[in-house]
Computed example of a mutant assay.
Amino acid sequence: MIADLYHQLGGYLHAVFVLNLDVVVLVGLIGQLLFTARFLVQWIASERAGRSVVPVSFWFLSIGGGLILLGYALYRKDPVFILGQSLGTLIYVRNLMLISRERRERSDA
């Protein structure tokens, strides 16, 4: 019984991660890696500062990963993924706009 479950699970994982692998999936994985890297960047920056910080690179990785994942979602015609990545990308761009405005105001003062 357990051996059958392991065999079925192994077959499923093989189908998902090996048989489904194509250029589109690789592009999606690259987008997901960029998106995940943003958390590593934020964690490292926070550890260095000794407090929670969100570096500008976090937002650029968010935009890069988000746009690649949005393209992947559009190609796959996944409405849930499309809506999530569309809204997220707008939020990331807006955060960069706010950061830019704040920096200009500080340099003018």
Rank of each mutant, 00 (worst) to 15 (best):
56 V>G: 05
108 D>N: 13
102 E>Y: 04
26 L>D: 00
9 L>M: 09
38 R>F: 02
91 I>F: 02
89 T>W: 03
40 L>V: 15
17 F>H: 12
90 L>N: 03
53 V>M: 02
43 W>C: 03
88 G>I: 07
44 I>H: 08
19 L>T: 15
109 A>K: 12
103 R>L: 02
17 F>Q: 09
87 L>R: 03
13 L>D: 11
87 L>W: 01
60 F>G: 01
68 I>P: 00
83 L>Y: 07
1 M>P: 11
47 E>D: 15
70 L>E: 02
6 Y>V: 13
85 Q>Y: 13
66 G>C: 06
33 L>F: 07
34 L>P: 03
59 W>D: 05
69 L>E: 07
104 R>C: 05
43 W>S: 04
103 R>T: 01
83 L>A: 15
70 L>R: 02
12 Y>L: 15
50 G>T: 00
54 V>W: 00
72 Y>H: 10
47 E>C: 11
22 D>L: 04
15 A>K: 09
25 V>D: 08
31 G>H: 05
82 I>V: 10
91 I>E: 01
35 F>C: 00
9 L>R: 02
19 L>Y: 13
15 A>I: 05
80 V>D: 11
89 T>G: 04
24 V>T: 12
73 A>Q: 03
16 V>W: 14
14 H>V: 08
42 Q>N: 08
39 F>G: 01
36 T>P: 00
5 L>C: 14
76 R>Q: 15
5 L>S: 14
106 R>P: 08
57 S>R: 13
12 Y>W: 15
74 L>N: 09
102 E>T: 09
25 V>F: 12
7 H>Q: 10
96 L>D: 05
95 N>K: 13
